[in-house]
Write a protein that binds this DNA or RNA. Structure first.
Lengths: 176, 176
DNA sequence: TATTGTTATACTCTATAACTATA
DNA sequence: TATAGTTATAGAGTATAACAATA
């Protein structure tokens, strides 16, 4: 359990992290913005899956996923085939072109990161990765809760139906 | 220097971090979205400053800063007074109402974070904070001068130590 | 009736460019 | 000419709600 000042400092770093995200986003091809890249990455990592599963992994609303998926499907990077087990669903799968693009993007971002973090030790990179994975896990775990005191600026009553994450393939820390 | 697989895993965590950011954003009052909160936070931390300085700290284009600042000024949370030293500039300053709102937001976010990270040790929180600060510094360093990372790493900006950036965030400053 | 997925709408954040008013 | 700041426009990401098809 940490003190208030610790949390304040961490929150500050969360905001500052936006600059890192933006910089990485700027090096994506204009045809493949970060949302599309995320779709390709998850399909490449976890294999074929349905929309709902992809939504869980992306941790966004399915309507958002639907738009991103439509974008990459229009460009031939993934295929959407009907699910024989459930006609409402569609199975998403990387095409060879999508795989090729994914490999290319991966090489590019890794190269950029290697350049930026050239003075980081392997262990430091691993440490940051581990802590960020745990951070996300901590948020997932407690997502159902909401025990915040009411403030004058109470926003929405509360997210009525949080994008419920199921157990299975949740970003498994640093395994693999 | 880490291996490719390390970087790939780290990149994955960068994407996953979006879920954390979104969740924190959802608990902001609708009148004060995260962009506005960032303005208040930086003014509270570093004191009165000009638009250009705030742009540097936010690490976004000044046009973006201008919009956020206009938003919080309209609501009476900051004041924009003319800079006697340069009539083109304006000095931004928190009003009492802004300070009050800032304190309230800070308490709220800290409380939420304390809840989510209740099983983290103080040292772990500090470690994550330190690594994220260094991450951002690594990106800043290599963006200013396009060296290949020979720059010795600067000591971490400790809590009360303002990490001042010295590069412009004007539009024409693109050096991808 | 509930669930899967799509679409329409709206809002936030961001960057680029054109503009003003000073310097 | 150059700089500080504003505004207009456009693009990406996201959430909510209404909807269709299927379970």
């Amino acid at each position: 359990m940490a003190e208030q000042a610790r949390y304040e400092e961490l929150i500050r770093q969360f905001s500052a992290f936006g600059a890192v995200k933006r910089e990485m986003g700027r090096m994506m091809p204009s045809e493949c913005p970060s949302g599309s890249a995320a779709v390709l990455t998850l399909l490449g990592r976890y294999g074929d899956m349905r929309m709902s599963k992809l939504s869980e992994l992306l941790a966004v609303d399915m309507s958002v996923t639907s738009r991103h998926v439509a974008h990459v499907a229009e460009r031939g990077w993934i295929e959407r085939s009907p699910d024989p087990a459930d006609k409402r669903s569609r199975i998403l799968r990387l095409t060879p072109a999508g795989r090729s693009l994914l490999d290319q993007l991966s090489r590019r971002t890794c190269h950029m990161l290697a350049e930026r973090l050239s003075d980081w030790s392997d262990d430091e990179v691993a440490q940051l990765t581990r802590l960020m994975a745990r951070l996300r896990a901590s948020f997932d775990d407690t997502r159902a809760h909401d025990t915040h005191g009411r403030e004058p600026h109470r926003p929405e009553p509360r997210p009525p139906a949080p994008p419920v994450l199921e157990q299975t393939t949740r970003t498994p820390a640093i395994t693999q």
